[in-house]
Design a binder for these strands. Structure first.
Lengths: 267, 267
DNA sequence: TTTGGCGAAA
DNA sequence: TTTCGCCAAA
């Protein structure tokens, strides 16, 4: 028996908006401690990890560990039927091949239940080792989203370079080049508007903008995004979900070609 | 000679937005008592009835009964040229084959007149008998619209079931099932937010969501919608137009198939 | 083209 | 604070 009651149902709606473009089908893993998901994107390049800890739910009952395979598109369709202020309860009976989403309007006048078939998905659950990162950038998520969107109108990849002074996002394309530098800035009114850089050593890595823009779909989940970089490690783009957990995206850097190579015709 | 001056011109704009998708061409009937329309939708499944009583007009002159055939798409195009605060005057000379829409901006700075050709439309004007309904549901129109929209992302038809406690909207589709229950609730701050059920006997009827969603286009006309249901009778979905009349939509219920039938392949 | 999110104005 | 109108994404 599984019963998870989430008062701020909009969180789950936003989570699905954030990951449904990247992942088609995935197993949601439910244990006594929380509700989580780990899945490769459909082209097996990026990895998504979601955690919603039990403390974040008003009511959390999960009698035994269970893995529920869902089509995220269909799940999203159903969650779209929940109001932004609705309380969402997720239910599954032991051994059942369905899951039920229950939506309660704030004033309890409207109660909806949506039942969805579960699917069998074989997923390789990867252990993600904790790593030391050369540089960790924390910045406003909206600013990061804007930068990725802007740069993708110029080029396909972004070079993220971190120095003590700030973080630079660069791209190059047919029509020209672009560099956007965000300086470290902690003297701002609101802490979520700060740009903070923790750097052990300078790092400069290249990523596909297409994926960065997908990750930025999670912007509504948090005012702040944290980007953790190390050479030779996948970047981690993390959006914290207040009091509950996070959505993290992992993406391997592109092996940076020689600048010269870039302009040569591909052989 | 016909001359109808409507101070709140936005009403006429909203009326056309509400019915233009359903009906292509229709006769507007004008008599001493009011301005009305009755027409089947283009696939002859639903019926639209509009009434704007003479009291609602600032000036109402209609010397003799007249029926004016109009293409609602073209009429809507013209009405879109009126500002939301404009005063709209509708004029037709006796024997003329045109109608003139005059738009006056609130400050009288701009006065526009649009002349449109009338058309000959043979319409069967149905007498709609007053009927006793098993159940009448009054609820916020926005909520009804939201429910129809949500359900149509799951299935094609909606089963509306009324009991004393509330009204239930259900659907079933490939990805799952959905039930939305709205409880009777009269203890709300504003009367237009109430959900009120007058029920003589329980009723459960099935309708095509496609039409319900068309009807819901009339939502801007009224905060409230009234749904009148009887087995064997078309449902009436009514949006009252304050101080003037109404737009009513009629739709025959689907003959509900056996649950078993639904899952069998169609022969 | 239509719909939802966002920002501005009452 | 709520509502309207604008802008952007599906």
């Amino acid at each position: 028996m599984l019963e998870l009651r989430l008062v701020q149902g909009s969180l789950l709606k936003k989570v699905l908006e954030a990951i449904k473009d990247l992942v088609n089908d995935a197993n949601f893993d439910c244990s006594a401690t929380g509700f989580s998901l780990q899945a490769m994107d459909s082209s097996h390049v990026a990895l998504v990890a979601l955690l919603l800890r039990n403390e974040g739910f008003e009511h959390y009952r999960c009698d035994r560990n269970i893995s529920m395979g869902m089509n995220l598109g269909n799940m999203n369709k159903m969650l779209k039927c929940a109001g932004n202020d609705d309380i969402i309860t997720l239910k599954a009976d032991d051994g059942s091949d369905t899951v039920t989403f229950m939506f309660e309007s704030p004033n309890q006048d409207k109660i909806a239940d949506f039942e969805m078939k579960l699917m069998d998905i074989d997923s390789e659950h990867l252990g993600i080792p904790e790593a030391e990162y050369h540089a960790i950038v924390r910045m406003p998520s909206a600013e990061f989203a804007r930068i990725c969107k802007d740069l993708s109108s110029i080029g396909d990849t972004v070079v993220i370079s971190v120095t003590k002074e700030g973080v630079k996002f660069s791209t190059k394309g047919d029509i020209g080049t672009a560099n956007i530098v965000c300086r470290q800035n902690t003297t701002v009114d609101k802490p979520e508007e700060a740009t903070v850089i923790e750097m052990k050593e300078p790092v400069s890595l290249t990523f596909a903008l297409r994926y960065m823009n997908s990750f930025a779909k999670a912007t509504p989940l948090s005012h702040t995004v944290t980007i953790s970089l190390s050479s030779e490690l996948p970047v981690v783009v993390e959006y914290k979900i207040e009091d509950m957990g996070y959505v993290r995206f992992y993406l391997a850097p592109k092996i940076e070609e020689d600048e010269e190579e870039d302009t040569k015709p591909k052989v």
